[in-house]
Design a protein around this nucleic acid. Structure first.
Length: 412
RNA sequence: GGGGGAGUGCCCGAGUGGUUAAAGGGGGCGGACUGUAAAUCCGUUGGCGAAGCCUACGUAGGUUCAAAUCCUACCUCCCCCA
């Protein structure tokens, strides 16, 4: 096969699912040079260990890294343990809270573990940017920083919005893109990938490399995954995320709760279902032949399968049908032990029971729950908030709050 | 260094002496409906075994029969000028 043909093949996989490749021609040239010299390209992805968990949104760039691995290139995962101390100001409307080094380190470790679910970390270089950022002295920092201008940084919407709204911008936040750019200089990245929100930071790397006499990297941006609310970008802090370590049932439920409108985006970005098949499925739903619920179920099975295996995915699907479609009891219900002593004088007050089970955090909330008909014991609705329960009325019985919270009581 | 402005419940935000546990929205919780934990609609959303009583509007004092609202000091933040 000719070099040109192989370049074309590689580019097809590389550019699939991307938003922008900047500049595309240069990327093609790099791939060509790599193929003809046998030298793999260095592909960089930087992640900030500001949070202890990765969610399926993070798997979008990780999946792209895996594509590069498949093509034989060298992947570098940069754990931004140093940059995390500042926090990326991209698309933030407030200064991020400062993390302690200990928190960052703990997050960094879980990041690596979780990245292993998507890429082959044995073949990837995993490095921490504190390695080279931490030893820099003030003079060196000034030399690097002088390659950037305030006007340039202020062009960014996130900064200019905050600025015009009178919100504070820490001086250190200006240095964030500078540091990320310097990472590219140090590891001599050929390509850096990131979400579209990273475009400025990614291009900063390209500019700094050029300014410092290195070959500038190409930049590849990927779409941001919307959260399960279908409105905002997926983020743990917005609580609209699907965590990579979420248990199967929870992961499944969260995926079933996404609005219909973003089903296809999820399929494209975080599942392994082939594009052709996605299009067919979409067409069937749009023609009314198939139900969106079924498409969503398919999606949930795929994704849960990726992280927990197909067996667990099927189990979670069956469980979901049972609990939410059929309104039956789940297969596994957590058991809560209650000492018999709580029943000593006559019985246990329902309100106490609900609080004890951890269903609510106050008596008032328990009363409200009962008043609104959201509490059942062994399938029977509790109508009276003053109800006293005898031991045999609850022992071994299933208490249910709303649709999705269950506990089996066991007296000890 | 000078001048001005702001701090309200989980979040945003209204309220400038009394019917204010505090409008409205978001989020949460519950219910109805369904195709699902979508969408939509409705209810609810400080604590106390619920009577009444506590606690709450940056912090501490004060004025008043009565304070989120007025006064004083302090803390924190922001803006403008230099």
């Amino acid at each position: 096969m000719s070099i040109e043909e192989r370049v074309r093949q590689q580019m097809e996989l590389i550019t699939s699912g991307t938003v922008e490749v900047i500049p595309e021609e240069e990327m093609r040239r790099k791939v060509g040079t790599s193929l003809s010299t046998g030298r793999p390209l260095t592909v960089k992805l930087g992640v900030d260990p500001t949070r202890p968990d990765l969610h399926i949104g993070h798997s979008v760039p990780l999946t792209k890294l895996r594509h590069f691995q498949q093509l034989g290139h060298q992947v570098v995962l940069i754990i931004g343990d140093f940059t995390a101390l500042i926090g990326d100001p991209s698309y933030q409307d407030v200064t991020r809270p400062v993390l302690t080094e200990k928190e960052v380190e703990r997050n960094a470790r879980t990041y690596i573990e979780q990245a292993e679910r998507v890429i082959d970390t044995t073949r990837a270089r995993v490095v921490r940017n504190s390695q080279w950022l931490s030893p820099l002295n003030f003079k060196e920092i000034l030399v690097i920083a002088s390659r950037f201008t305030v006007a340039r940084v202020l062009e960014r919407d996130d900064f200019s919005n905050r600025y015009s709204e009178g919100k504070p911008i820490g001086l250190h936040e200006f240095l964030y893109p500078v540091m990320q750019a310097y990472d590219s200089v140090v590891i001599e990245a050929d390509i850096e990938i990131g979400g579209t929100d990273q475009k400025f930071n990614l291009l900063a790397g390209r500019n700094l490399q050029r300014a410092m006499g290195k070959e500038p990297q190409c930049v590849l941006t990927l779409p941001l995954l919307e959260g399960t609310d279908g409105v905002r970008k997926m983020s743990k802090s917005l609580e609209n995320d699907v965590g990579l370590t979420d248990p199967p049932d929870e992961m499944f439920g969260k995926l079933m709760s996404i609005p219909d409108g973003i089903i296809w985006e999820y399929f494209r970005l975080v599942s392994r279902v082939e594009p052709v098949e996605i299009e067919q499925l979409k067409a069937r739903v749009e023609s009314g032949e198939a139900n969106p619920r079924d498409a969503k179920e398919r999606l949930a099975v795929e994704i849960v399968g990726m992280y927990h295996g197909p067996g667990e995915a099927e189990r979670a699907a069956a469980e979901f049908r049972r609990v939410f479609s059929m309104r039956e009891l789940p297969e596994r219900i957590k058991t809560v032990e209650i000492p018999r002593s709580r029943f000593s004088d006559g019985g246990m007050w329902v309100v106490d029971l609900v609080v004890y089970l951890g269903f609510v955090s106050s008596n008032g909330e328990a009363r409200r729950l009962i008043a609104q008909g959201g509490l059942t014991i062994e399938g029977e609705k509790v109508e009276d908030a003053d109800l006293e329960l005898a031991a045999q009325q609850v022992d071994g019985k299933v208490v249910r709050k709303g649709k999705k919270t269950f506990a089996r009581v066991e007296l000890v």
